[in-house]
Design a protein around this nucleic acid. Structure first.
Lengths: 346, 346
DNA sequence: GAACCGGATGTGATGGTTCACATTTGCTCC
DNA sequence: GGAGCAAATGTGAACCATCACATCCGGTTC
């Protein structure tokens, strides 16, 4: 006489057999309805559907994953989610993978926690994700990505391109060139640069193209000032640049450092754009409301999301990385605002 | 003589039986080692561990979830990921749930897509998450959350508090009061307000407390100007306020709108803080580099993440929402910077 | 009217783990 | 040296879907 619920079935949610019983068919027919198999008579299909509705049936994804070896889930490793780029990428990738019928697991690695990228990928793999997307791996991560088992579909976004791994990469070069040439075209003798942290793929590209553009124009290449993407570091860089009369134009590797730069300039009584013109990178939503309104380069993250998910899905479908072509995004476009002007006196 | 790989096992990854065979024990013993069951002789345990290493064994989470009915995964629905608050919450929740041994699935609902909150929760439930966390539900979502099946652990963060659903909520009130009183204490006759969109819990609280504080101080309550959290809307609001000499102090419901306000003030030749003092809300990383450096209220998102995950885990452990107490966070702290000053002329 | 055919449906095995319970092992103790 | 007992280990079922294959059925075809 121990108390025990009289439920023979321990009150578990209905399974495929319960539905089958209710609809008067076999469990296999229910499965066929579930998977939109064509060989089911419409009347039968409707009866099964009705049974599902009545019982409140929900297919068990664990059982399905177990036999299918597919989870319809993508895994996303974000290296620096607090930055505008990675955060935007995350949003779009989530959206696109969802509309492709895939769920998303995320793993945000704190900045600089590179040593664990490999573990992150492995951990997602254990969770049976169908593909892993890594946003913004750094060159130092190369050895971590290289020896990955080749049976796991993988896409890298931005940053490091790893041989044999399909990737979506930015084509910042033309944008940077355009920005620098635009400043020179306004009459500036040269353009100074606040760079991102050395070793970061995008930081390096922006610095390199800035430098090359100056060289090709036969201009002097001033030593770049290195920041860490934050407004704070842009401010520090600004203090180093403000007040020198050889500094009339600055290209900042991102918008937030440009904001810090503005702050430093103002502190030193230097006006922008009259005394110093500034171009940023990202076009964060706030950029138009910086003072002055920031001329900057805008990346299309919607395009990035689409291609990234597509590359992942294609690998899942074909079951291999072979033949899945990497994608290079369209160059960023220069958004002209109020932070750029001709130099005051030639 | 059809060609067919000689692999008897179709080259599948090793399972628990393979490990058992290799270690010369039963599959159950392997399972015990896997789950740190105490009743295994150390020597046996080591032998099994070695076998796992040699074979490169990875436990299959689908199989485990199937029988356990636990996925060790939390589901997160983010309502407005592009805003600072929700984005910060996401980061911390991800971090804390990971260090608690839980993975995270996310579902970002585009702003205002409220009608689908219910579907979002259902879809996560189908994915067998052990608990669902909803960040920033709106009052309009009340009917969507209420009738949810009670067998799914659920936590709401910020915004709407739903009866019977454990929640983590902000306690912005004291912060807002402190900010407004601080401005009055500087000598301002009254404080104007740029509000967040009506209907958003936090926007409403900030507006209400701002108003009440003024009333209790016997000051005039000017009509608030409503924004939508963006710098753009702050700019629009600023254009409405700039240049009126009854406007000497403004409390903006978030930092970005304060940025827009600064922009508008500058356009109209109004100086801050000399002519107009401004206090924001959030302390975004850039706030210290706005011009002027922004006095603002800072929320502790690390605390938010900790409590949120804790509430979810407690429900998972106890198997019920009963007895799991909601949490109210510490009030935000006022960060004094350069955007506030006494009014010029009394 | 028998053979044939393709569409509709059913049967049983399978996937990899944990659960419930049974059995063996290794001691202690008298 | 055997009872007694706990620790260590093993056996088989269960979880819930899909896969592979078998069977059934009604209608053509000759």
């Amino acid at each position: 006489m121990t108390e025990r619920p009289a439920d023979g079935k321990a009150n578990r949610p209905p399974d495929i057999h319960a539905v089958a019983r209710h609809a008067g068919v076999s469990h296999q027919t229910v499965s066929r309805v579930l998977n939109d198999h064509p060989r089911v008579r419409p009347s039968t299909r409707e009866r099964v559907r009705e049974a599902m509705r009545v019982l409140g049936y929900i297919p068990n994804v664990a059982a399905r994953t177990l036999i299918t070896r597919r989870s319809r889930t993508l895994g996303l490793v974000v290296l620096n989610e607090e930055l505008y780029g990675p955060a935007s990428a995350l949003r779009h990738i989530e959206q696109d993978s969802r509309s492709a019928g895939y769920g998303l697991r995320i793993l945000n690695l704190p900045p600089m926690a590179r040593s664990t990228l490999r573990e992150a990928v492995e951990s997602l793999r254990q969770q049976l994700v169908d593909a892993v997307i890594v946003v913004d791996p750094h060159p130092e991560d190369q050895p971590l990505l290289g020896p990955l088992p080749s049976d796991l579909p993988l896409v890298t976004v931005g940053g490091l391109r790893s041989a044999g791994v399909p990737s979506v990469s930015y084509d910042s070069g033309p944008g940077v060139r355009q920005a620098v040439e635009y400043l020179l075209g306004l009459g500036h003798r040269t353009v100074h640069h606040i760079a991102g942290p050395a070793g970061w793929a995008e930081a390096d590209i922006r610095r390199t193209v800035w430098q090359r553009t100056l060289e090709q124009a036969g201009r002097e290449v001033p030593p770049p000032v290195e920041g860490d993407w934050t407004a704070r570091s842009g401010h520090a860089a600004g203090l180093a640049l403000a007040g020198r009369d050889d500094v009339t134009a600055v290209f900042s590797a991102n918008d937030q450092m440009a904001l810090g730069l503005f702050h430093a300039l103002a502190e030193r009584g230097v006006r922008a754009p009259e005394d110093v013109s500034v171009v940023g990178f990202d076009d964060v939503p706030d950029a138009a409301y910086y003072r002055p309104s920031l001329t900057t380069l805008r990346q299309d993250f919607a395009e990035l999301g689409r291609h990234t998910v597509q590359l992942a899905l294609r690998q899942i479908e074909t079951g291999t990385r072979e033949g899945v072509e990497s994608v290079t995004l369209a160059p960023p476009s220069l958004i002209l605002r109020a932070s750029t002007a001709p130099p005051l006196s030639t």
